[in-house]
Simulated scan of single mutants.
Amino acid sequence: MDVKQVSVADKARRWIFSVHFCTPIIIIISPRLQILILAFLAASVSACKMNRCYNESELSEAVERKLRSHYHQPPDPLPAADPDSPSSCPVELYQYLAPHEENRRSLSPWRYVLRSMKDHFPSTYSEAECLCSGCILIQDVPGKGRVPVENFSYTSVPIIQSRVFLRRDLCGDGGKYRLTPVSQDVAVGCTCARPMST
């Protein structure tokens, strides 16, 4: 294959590829088209790597590598409660909670519960669950002074963040797995908000 640079009347750069089979063929490609072709090829190679199939022994190493390099995971707050365990709005304890426990001393306190997703990596994660329907406010109560009360003029609402997980999908041959990135909305905390008007 011979590559020659030639000038054209409009002074634009063109590349001529002369390919010799039975008869010479001349293809003129502009620099912009060259860049588009290279970008397309790079995307194709990247897509092939992302859709690679792994056998069972390669899977855990591939998951760890992908989560570390492409899909960084936030640390899970500990401890996380069982989602079926009882919970209540901690109004009585509000003034006595440790200052480093942001989730407990918030106007909209929350706890972390452990969630599971089958065939996903990571397979378990912590998610915030609001403990109150209203918000804890300090108010004057006759005979008690200024005390924390749950005020239902406001609502506790979850703060949602999109998080990427790797889903394990069966490849066509049935013996290997593909790792597909999927987004999942996860509650990371709670905040106090005015109720939505209808």
Results as ranks from 00 to 15, higher is better:
residue 116 S to D: 05
residue 108 S to K: 10
residue 121 F to L: 02
residue 118 K to L: 10
residue 77 P to W: 03
residue 114 L to H: 07
residue 88 S to D: 08
residue 65 R to S: 13
residue 148 P to V: 02
residue 84 D to V: 10
residue 68 R to C: 06
residue 132 C to V: 05
residue 146 R to Q: 12
residue 144 K to W: 01
residue 131 L to A: 04
residue 76 D to C: 01
residue 95 Q to S: 12
residue 127 E to M: 15
residue 134 G to A: 05
residue 142 P to A: 09
residue 87 S to L: 08
residue 69 S to F: 10
residue 95 Q to K: 07
residue 105 R to T: 14
residue 105 R to S: 03
residue 124 T to I: 14
residue 72 H to N: 03
residue 109 P to V: 11
residue 92 E to V: 04
residue 73 Q to F: 07
residue 75 P to K: 10
residue 84 D to K: 14
residue 101 E to Q: 12
residue 108 S to H: 02
residue 106 S to V: 03
residue 149 V to E: 04
residue 70 H to R: 11
residue 78 L to F: 08
residue 111 R to H: 14
residue 140 D to E: 11
residue 112 Y to D: 02
residue 113 V to D: 07
residue 83 P to Q: 08
residue 98 A to S: 12
residue 88 S to C: 10
residue 147 V to K: 10
residue 150 E to C: 09
residue 115 R to A: 08
residue 86 P to M: 06
residue 146 R to M: 10
residue 112 Y to T: 11
residue 125 Y to T: 04
residue 84 D to A: 12
residue 68 R to H: 13
residue 89 C to R: 01
residue 120 H to G: 01
residue 64 E to Q: 14
residue 146 R to V: 07
residue 118 K to D: 10
residue 67 L to A: 01
residue 129 E to S: 10
residue 143 G to P: 03
residue 149 V to G: 00
residue 90 P to V: 07
residue 95 Q to G: 01
residue 118 K to P: 06
residue 117 M to K: 12
residue 122 P to I: 04
residue 82 D to N: 15
residue 103 N to W: 14
residue 81 A to F: 12
residue 73 Q to R: 08
residue 150 E to G: 04
residue 89 C to D: 02
residue 84 D to E: 15
residue 102 E to W: 08
residue 106 S to N: 14
residue 89 C to E: 02
residue 93 L to F: 05
residue 85 S to Y: 08
residue 105 R to K: 13
residue 147 V to M: 11
residue 129 E to P: 01
residue 123 S to K: 09
residue 68 R to P: 00
residue 97 L to Y: 07
residue 76 D to I: 02
residue 79 P to L: 13
residue 110 W to F: 15
residue 109 P to C: 09
residue 130 C to P: 02
residue 74 P to M: 02
residue 114 L to W: 09
residue 124 T to R: 15
residue 139 Q to I: 02
residue 99 P to H: 11
residue 104 R to L: 15
residue 109 P to R: 06
residue 131 L to V: 03
residue 138 I to L: 11
residue 102 E to Y: 13
residue 68 R to V: 02
residue 95 Q to P: 04
residue 125 Y to V: 11
residue 97 L to K: 12
residue 79 P to Y: 09
residue 82 D to G: 04
residue 112 Y to R: 08
residue 104 R to Y: 13
residue 97 L to F: 15
residue 105 R to E: 00
residue 110 W to Y: 15
residue 141 V to Q: 04
residue 91 V to W: 02
residue 123 S to N: 13
residue 145 G to L: 06
residue 126 S to F: 05
residue 142 P to R: 07
residue 116 S to H: 14
residue 67 L to E: 13
residue 132 C to P: 01
residue 130 C to E: 03
residue 150 E to S: 05
residue 78 L to K: 13
residue 121 F to N: 06
residue 111 R to I: 14
residue 67 L to M: 15
residue 100 H to G: 12
residue 117 M to A: 12
residue 81 A to G: 00
